[in-house]
């Protein structure tokens, strides 16, 4: 989706706040949302569907509201879309009785249990597939020119450009379909682009690396 989230190379967003202090959470509510997001994910969602729901936030809200606020709004949207909570409950500010079985109430975890769970969250997204990789390291590739209306991880700035395969990472879950609930795997590559190829004006030696799935790529004609 060519949405507001696809920010790479956009201009006019102003200076960076380089003086920010290094505390993990700047307000109490940021910490609450971080914690909520770790222990409450809508059953059956995928990381890519969650990301897509965040991309679908109204552009003005996406740019202007604080970061962890957008996580909360994304959580609301995935719970509502799945039927776990309703807009009426949000407006009323309290939960209403439904026929849904919410299962056993979540139990309190200790710090050690939380740290163990964090360790378990080192998720892997790769898998063995029968199909051999189409490209090898050092080969030239061209990225797809067009995007599509769904979730994708090929940013606009990198479309229709020539790059070189820098590394092959095996086959990883393909996000464009994972965002629709379909788990398939495709070969994933680090692709190196010259900054001049992408931006015209750039230092001659500078490079940009993206991790791109095989179907984002094709062989150049010459």
């Amino acid at each position: 989706m060519d949405g507001i989230h696809d920010l790479g190379g956009k201009q006019g967003h102003g200076p960076i706040d380089t003086d920010e202090d290094e505390t993990a959470f700047h307000t109490e509510w940021e910490g609450r949302e971080w914690g909520l997001a770790q222990c409450a994910r809508t059953p059956g969602i995928t990381i890519d569907w969650w990301r897509h729901c965040r991309e679908l936030i109204l552009p003005q809200d996406y740019l202007e509201r604080p970061y962890f606020d957008s996580w909360a709004q994304t959580d609301f949207s995935t719970y509502i879309e799945s039927g776990w909570i309703s807009i009426d409950e949000i407006i009323a500010g309290k939960s209403q009785a439904t026929d849904r079985d919410y299962g056993e109430a979540a139990q309190a975890m200790s710090l050690q249990q939380v740290l163990d769970e964090d360790h378990d969250l080192a998720s892997r997204f790769d898998a063995e597939i029968d199909c051999p990789p189409a490209y090898e390291v050092g080969q030239s590739v061209i990225t797809r020119v067009h995007g599509h209306g769904g979730h994708t991880r090929l940013p606009q700035y990198a479309r229709g450009h020539r790059g070189i395969i820098h590394a092959h990472h095996g086959a990883h879950v393909f996000p464009d379909l994972s965002a629709k609930g379909e788990e398939t795997h495709q070969h994933l590559y680090s692709v190196m682009f010259s900054a001049v190829e992408l931006w015209g004006e750039s230092a001659a030696n500078d490079k940009v690396y993206l991790d791109l799935w095989e179907s984002y790529l094709s062989k150049p004609e010459s």
Binding site: F25, R32, G35, Q38, C39, A106, Q107, M109
Partner: peptide, 12 residues
């Protein structure tokens, strides 16, 4: 019952 407040405290 989908989250536990104390568990959120521990994640923070």
């Amino acid at each position: 019952g989908l989250v536990n407040s104390q568990t959120i405290d521990r994640w923070v």
